[in-house]
Amino acid sequence: MSAPFPACVVRVDDEVHTLEGYQRGVPRWCTGCGDNAILAAVQRLCRDEQLAPERSVFVSGIGCSSRFPHYMNVYGFHGIHGRALPVAEGVKMARPDLHVFVSTGDGDCCSIGAAHWIHAIRYNMDITVVLHDNQVYGLTKMQVSPTSPQGLKTRTTPRGAHLEPLNPLTVTLGVSNVSFVAQAVDWIPELLHDIISLAFHHKGFSFVRVLQRCPEFMEGAFEPWVKDPSRTLLLVHKDGIELKPNLAKVYRNQEEHDPMNLHRAREIASSADPIPVGILYRNPDATRYEDVRKSERLYTADTTRAVLEKEFDKFTIWPAD
């Protein structure tokens, strides 16, 4: 049934957004960098959902991945190192009507920004976070990152990285009030898109770790997994991702995993080989900070002033008439 006449007129000339419409400038990322795949997947999502550019914000910290907002033709905030999440939370708090995305890297999120990361998971605000994890500091020309594999020789670890890498999935799944955790890889673009799309539709803090290749400083690091589909464990479920036949034929290593099963999610997250891909955990009922802190009252500057005046008046001593 068509909308009533006035609504038709009011909605006339609604814009249709194309994928190219979300592109701004030419990415400075290296050829072959996984960031390009993430950008394409996110732009597909924006096009499919017809997200209004003026109602979408991409916030980032520092690093290769954090150049992301520059290449999106929407609002962006290229912030300071490790502080993408608090900025994004502030945006969401002030403007809950906006779609807020965060692009952060393994250094930005898991090293200098780790404290903010932990609390952002617990706050569970409705934000889509993509962790671009190439396991190395690329922008500053190859230093060790918290997720670098043990033994990786970098400019800061010439004898090889000393410690076991931090696992962003197990860390996230260990924080109370976690609500959405997924993993994707940049070399299966269809799933990358599907997972980011599910993350976007989740109401809460949706955390997607994307394992991505860095052809410049981590050449061949994921080659065995790219070449051997059996080393990728696809998590399928009716409440998670459902594989199309073409992918199911190639990636036969699959597990039926209920995203509500936190215990199993933690076990799966611990696996580095095969690499799990899919939705590890999703709890739509987790408390969202913006909901519990939502004020019925709209605090405009005038309201704040009026309320303060009223409070001050309680303590004012008026001269006698």
Binding site: L19, T31, G32, C33, G34, N36, A37, L39, A40, Q43, R44, D186, W187, I188, P189, E190, H193, P215, N246
Partner: peptide, 25 residues
């Protein structure tokens, strides 16, 4: 095409021979 990761390698070699579709693949 569905497996393309949009890494720009081919388009940088020849952007008339290789192009991206609506999904940037």
């Amino acid at each position: 095409t569905p497996r393309c990761t949009t890494c720009d390698e081919c388009t940088q070699i020849n952007n008339r021979m290789f192009a991206y579709d609506d999904n940037k693949q």
